[in-house]
Design a protein around this nucleic acid. Structure first.
Length: 852
RNA sequence: GCGAGUGUGGCGGAAUUGGUAGACGCGCUAGACUUAGGAUCUAGUGCCACAAGCGUGGGGGUUCGAGUCCCUCCACUCGCACCA
């Protein structure tokens, strides 16, 4: 019989589905294992990144399953989002219809991969039964003061009548219509993630199962820094300017003040003065720039003098106050004390506007001259010009100065975070409605719990201009729950990251209609033991989920602090690219003998890059699975590189995996009779028996350890090596007991393949006469004693170079081994006429001889 | 600029504590077989002036012994980036 993947795969997928093999229930008698892969956005088609992600997760799941864990392995759809709405505008299909039909398509594709999902737990976040609970949690957070509404400046397109994300602003213009983007003060809802900044940071040191890289990224994102808040009085005004600084040691050198253009004092200080007109123009011009160009690397520092002065509280220096383009409203207080001698940016600013530079820290070995210095001295050193702190070490003096400021009542110790509260308002239709009502009489009124869900209305039109919800009469007009008068509904929807911040909890009881999730179920299943997904979510999704988990804990829902015990961030799937001068990126089939088929010009074999449509280097999983089968597709994506590294797609490598499966198939097919014969379970321990047992046990050991360490590529390599060994030894298998051992070895080969290539494994398991499913078999264990060989070959080195090999008995006495080594023919040659200076024996490993 | 990481044959990639570098796969070379298959099987395959010598980005060091440890330089990738 030949290996026919298409028949086999369909057959076993049906059997798994009929028998509900992967359906799980809570079972207190069994240890649980929660294996989760990041759920996909239903774009309509799966791509290679999905294949890789889900293949990795499926190996882990199936392996844990075979080890006797009660494995929950769910799948669902991150179904809200902009593409559905864009499709609605373009093709006049309702986003729901578009989304659900995409889900259907992708589900078919995923099923063709043979993944061990419990499809009964499937969820789609656009289902009112899902977002209903999200709205409820929103209200509970609101009650707890974790949600608030605030006005802030946002990108606004006057033509499309909508807020734009930073990514949607191209060259200061709207990505869709090209209209100049302006800033507008918009009311938005925020989650108070900053309340959890400290805990989120703290726990990055308590997640040993996470990649250090991701933890560092999160720490940087949270951006905690220690320093001081200092108040500066504005001359002749009853105004204080508060700044945050991490360098209180430079306070004596602060010679001017800087305000962000967005800072309320920027406008206030110039109000009604001769500076007002030009100052406002300056502010406008800075705000008009989009964030990218304003923050550009070599951006020239620009400032506007407000005509006002502040007083340095320690020196009394009269500090001119400027509005400056490089001051960020998002960081600290949006106001900065400038110390040109010790900060490069302030230095450049001072040089440009001719401002005073006072040196307050000098290096140990030289003096600085403010007149001639060409750059700021930002390092630590010895304090000068700093009154009673002179001569002290600038690092050590930081806390002393803060103490001093506190004693004078003009400043205090402060911690600052870069992390900002999470703005969740989106002026979009295809998202979960924010359950709030605005009443002219009662103000902001939360939707009563019994009125949830606030469903998305159907009577909407998708024109691409503004938020369709604004124009839905049935949705907007609502009675105030408090006073009963007519009021208006909030038409913003929630950021889609909100749905993905808790979906892993909903999987525990996906159909529950009385609460977001069942507490007992969550107590049993959570936290997720292994989470797998792309590193592109290293910050946002993973940080939000951590935040949400802590919020739900504080709302009394959860008993744990962190959602994901272990995290695996898989690398991208890449492929070679081709480029031609004339036609830019080319498909592989447009290249012939290194020339472009379209124009005949030389083709540049481009770099290996992430698969993308624009670079014409994508491989369609559907075609791949049709051609080679899901088992081959899975095997190649696991074998070609370690999970966390980028994977280079290579057609010939795929064929190699396909051929390997063919080889395995043939060993089994050829030896199928062994399984129909009665064979003795004991017998003479021949060399063949010992070898088979050695291969088998050492492979089980290697594969088990590798899977535990997520080194799936080497686990596959070990199975390949094992099958090669079984092929080699097959002609030597003679006695019945040898046959018994060989049969056993083949069984273990099939079992070990099951998590990686489950269809072919099931089929081979079946044709070898097994009536149960290999997917339900127990993962084999190994006996250490068989993994050790009695006879071993060790190397003999002379002056560090390998000069010979000797065969020894394991555990042989040192003296005897050394004697053998020296007597070895090849070695003896090197010893002649030389003086033996040193002899080293590393037990059962090597002999090292040093001669002169 | 800051932070993290990577660098090993023609290619993807292996190498517990420092202990025979190149597992496994691809590719390549030669051969066998054929019921011509997506074949399959056997042998070989780091480099080279082939008994020697050289080889894990370059240079130095520690060691009997270094891909692995230390110093130094270089290249590339990713993340953050006017963070006060």
């Amino acid at each position: 019989m030949k290996y026919n993947h298409s028949i086999i795969e369909k057959k076993w997928q049906n059997i798994w589905e009929e028998k509900k093999v992967f359906k799980v229930e809570k079972d207190n008698k069994k240890p649980k294992y929660y294996c989760l892969e990041m759920f996909p956005y239903p774009s309509g088609k799966i791509h290679m990144g999905h294949v890789r992600n889900y293949a990795i997760g499926d190996v882990i799941s199936r392996y844990k399953f075979m080890q006797g864990f009660n494995v929950i392995h769910p799948m669902g759809w991150d179904a809200f989002g902009l593409p559905a709405e864009n499709a609605a505008i373009k093709n006049k299909v309702h986003p729901a219809k578009w989304t659900y039909s995409n889900i259907e398509n992708m589900k078919v594709q995923l099923k063709k991969m043979g993944l061990s999902y419990d499809w009964d737990r499937e969820i789609a976040t656009c289902d009112p039964e899902y977002y209903k609970w999200e709205q409820m949690i929103f209200l509970q957070m609101y009650e707890k003061g974790l949600v608030y509404r605030k006005k802030s400046l946002q990108n606004w397109c006057n033509d499309c009548h909508t807020v734009l994300a930073n990514e949607q602003v191209e060259d200061g213009k709207c990505w869709r219509c090209g209209e100049e983007v302006t800033k507008k003060e918009i009311n938005s809802w925020y989650f108070k993630i900053t309340d959890y900044a400290e805990e989120l940071l703290d726990y990055t040191y308590k997640l040993p199962g996470w990649p250090e890289k991701v933890l560092i990224m999160q720490r940087n994102w949270i951006g905690k820094s220690y320093g001081a808040e200092v108040n500066f009085k504005v001359e002749n005004e009853d105004i204080d300017i508060t700044v945050f600084t991490t360098r209180p040691d430079t306070l004596y050198g602060a010679t001017f003040m800087l305000l962000a253009p967005e800072h309320h004092l920027s406008k206030e200080l110039i109000k009604g003065t001769e500076y007002e007109c030009e100052g406002l123009k300056f502010i406008e011009s800075i705000l008009a720039e989009d964030k990218v160009s304003r923050m550009a690397d070599d951006k020239e520092k620009k400032g506007f003098f407000t005509g006002k002065y502040a007083t340095n509280p320690l020196t009394g220096y009269r500090m001119p106050i400027y509005i400056a383009n490089y001051i960020l409203m998002d960081y600290g207080t949006g106001a900065v004390m400038a110390v040109p001698a010790h900060d490069q940016r302030d230095f450049e600013f001072a040089r440009k506007y001719n401002l005073k530079i006072i040196i307050v820290i000098k290096p140990n070995d030289r003096d600085l001259d403010p007149e001639t210095m060409t750059e700021a001295y930002a390092e630590s050193g010895v304090m000068v010009n700093s009154d009673k702190f002179n001569g002290m070490d600038s690092e050590k003096v930081k806390t002393d100065i803060i103490d001093y400021l506190e004693s004078l009542g003009i400043g205090k110790r402060a911690v600052n975070y870069r992390l900002k509260d999470w703005g969740i308002s989106r002026q979009r239709y295809w998202g979960a409605p924010i359950p709030i009502i605005y009443c002219d009489y009662c103000g902001i009124v939360p939707v009563p719990y019994e009125d949830l869900p606030v469903k998305l209305p159907i009577d909407v039109e998708f024109t691409g201009i503004g938020n369709p919800l604004d124009k839905s009469e049935s949705f907007v007009n609502v009675k105030c729950p408090k006073c009963g008068k007519m009021a208006k509904r909030e038409t913003d929807t929630m950021d889609t990251f909100v749905e993905s911040s808790w979906y892993f909890l909903r999987y525990c009881s996906p159909k529950l209609d009385t609460a977001p999730f069942d507490k007992d179920e969550v107590d049993y299943w959570m936290p997720v033991d292994q989470y797998i997904g792309g590193v592109e979510h290293a910050i946002l999704h993973l940080l939000y989920s951590r935040f949400y988990t802590k919020v739900l804990r504080d709302l009394g829902y959860l008993k744990f602090d962190e959602p994901f015990q272990r995290l695996l961030t898989q690398g991208m799937v890449c492929k070679e690219t081709y480029r031609c001068e004339e036609h830019d990126w080319l498909y592989p089939e447009e290249v012939e003998n290194g020339k472009c088929k379209l124009c005949g010009k030389d083709v540049e074999v481009g770099r290996v890059e992430k698969m993308s449509k624009s670079k014409k280097n994508v491989v369609d999983p559907d075609n791949l699975i049709d051609e080679y089968g899901a088992d081959t597709a899975r095997l190649f994506s696991l074998f070609a590189s370690p999970p966390e590294k980028d994977l280079e797609w290579n057609e010939q490598g795929v064929e190699g995996c396909f051929r390997f499966l063919g080889r395995v198939w043939r060993i089994v097919d050829k030896n199928v009779d062994l399984f129909k014969t009665e064979l003795p379970t004991t017998g003479e321990e021949t060399k063949v028996v010992k070898d088979i047992l050695y291969f088998m046990h050492s492979t089980i050991k290697k594969v088990t350890n590798d899977i535990e360490k997520y080194q799936l590529n080497t686990a596959v390599a070990a199975i390949m090596e094992y099958s090669n060994n079984l092929i080699d030894i097959e002609p030597l298998v003679k006695s019945d007991y040898e046959k018994y051992c060989y049969r056993n070895a083949i069984e273990n080969l099939i079992i070990m393949l099951a998590p990686f290539t489950p269809h072919i494994a099931e089929e081979m398991w079946n044709i070898t006469g097994h009536e149960d499913l290999v997917s339900l078999s127990l993962w084999p264990s190994f006996d250490e004693k068989y993994t050790i060989k009695d006879e071993i070959v060790i190397a003999v080195q002379i002056n560090g170079k390998v000069r010979g090999e000797i065969l020894i008995q394991r555990g042989m006495a040192e003296a005897e081994v050394l004697k053998m080594a020296k007597n070895n023919e090849k070695v003896a040659k090197y010893l002649a006429d030389k003086v033996l200076v040193k002899e080293i024996y590393v037990k059962d490993k090597l002999v090292s001889l040093v001669v002169k």
